[in-house]
Design a protein around this nucleic acid. Structure first.
Lengths: 229, 229
DNA sequence: TAAGAAGTATGATTTAGGTCATTTTTTTGC
DNA sequence: GCAAAAAAATGACCTAAATCATACTTCTTA
């Protein structure tokens, strides 16, 4: 259980610092970030921002998980990305100058820092390292999404589920994957019922086991073979 | 028919200049681009770069069309983007420092300029306008791809075809859409046979007409309604 | 701690769209 | 201008996965 305080989290002490684009800065830049940001505790399911909203700044996840998604016609969510500790969320709309094209909600209770648009853009402008980091990050994500598109177009739901479980296993690290069946289905891009059935198959085949809602990956190799990555 | 010469195309005279991130620069920066780039004529179907290759620079389309795609398991292409005059192709891998995650081929004969990695990165580093333009461009593309993913997951092939035709109609401007049925299928993310059948339906319904392989959009409004955009 | 609400699971049914086979049309190269 | 190859079109068939209906479990919170 996270502390429900709103106390400031010093970047220097941030556990996710080494993995973070933002907090991996040094010297006075780091101090600048530190002094201009605010930190908040988010309950599970709270929105960071909504589709169509206007961006006021970026969010840096100190601890927790955030789903980035977009809603289709009948309200069905497509989860584009699951962000974890150290990641910056919401910086795309910052540069495009357009409203958010996606929404973001916490998937569990989280501590999340916020840096205002001006401060962030100022940092990007004056700090070549951060800038290059962001360019690199954007490019990588673009590559990720190209392969996401390809998978959606060419792979079966079964293959996509295997791939998704591998990605999520990475994101959740030592913890079990902790997503509702519906969220998982919305990440894989399928109906919840189909997801549940396939997950059962995977259990029968020994690829995973479940602890109520949580999913434990037992056979990575098997999933890799199945996903055809 | 384009001139098959390799003569230098001066950025100042580039017809696509107004639409181009790169050539919309001014003064000495423009001259710098101009002097450091080389221009080539590409036949239809020629590769600019291949998946897994190492990037040496970026391509700027003076005239022509380029498909950006990625190949799946059985070699089936998924077309991610169709680039046209004025667009820069291949700058993502430039920043990520990784091999190309996608490939690019001309879809028709094209005049394409090339700027080396060093020159390009130098420009990005020293020219804040270009830099911001690139950040904006990357962000927009990221948003595009999120909606691409959502469409693949939630829309029917019929709806996706309608959406694809609208996008392509924009890209081809005054010209008719000129893609092989296979390429179109690989853009929509479906089997070629399915695409041909649906295209016939669209013809019967008066949304489009075909001139041999070329496709003319007759009823944009109708397609918009169908695509549910 | 009981009741209601969410979330998970399973069964039955339908269908969009993939696959394979074949024919027809268009393009390409000699 | 003709033969061969490539692309487009059509038909027959099949299955992965969606949808709808219902039941069962696990969380909430009153």
């Amino acid at each position: 259980m996270l502390e429900k305080s709103h106390k400031h989290i010093t970047c220097k002490n941030c556990l996710s610092r080494k993995d973070s684009l933002l907090c991996s800065m040094t010297g006075e830049d780091l101090e600048k970030v530190d002094s201009s940001k605010s930190c908040s505790y988010f309950k599970k399911g709270q929105p960071l921002f909504i589709e169509g909203g206007l961006p006021r700044g970026v969010f840096c996840i100190n601890e927790g998980k955030v789903k980035v998604y977009s809603r289709g016609e009948e309200g069905k969510e497509q989860i584009i990305h699951v962000a974890t500790s150290g990641e910056i969320v919401g910086f795309r709309a910052m540069f495009s100058g357009e409203p958010y094209s996606v929404a973001a909600n916490t998937l569990e209770e989280s501590n999340i820092c916020f840096i205002s648009k001006d401060d962030f853009l100022d940092l990007v402008d004056t700090n070549p390292n951060l800038r290059n980091g962001i360019l690199r990050e954007l490019s990588k994500e673009l590559a990720d999404r190209a392969s996401f598109i390809k998978n959606m177009a060419q792979k079966s739901v079964r293959e996509r589920l295997a791939a998704a479980l591998l990605i999520l296993d990475d994101i959740y690290g030592e913890d079990f994957i902790n997503l509702s069946r519906e969220d998982l289905a919305n990440f894989v891009g399928t109906a919840t019922e189909t997801l549940i059935r396939l997950l059962k198959d995977f259990k029968d085949d020994g690829f995973v086991t479940t602890h109520v809602r949580k999913i434990e990956v037992l056979d990575k190799e098997g999933l890799i073979r199945l996903a055809g990555v």
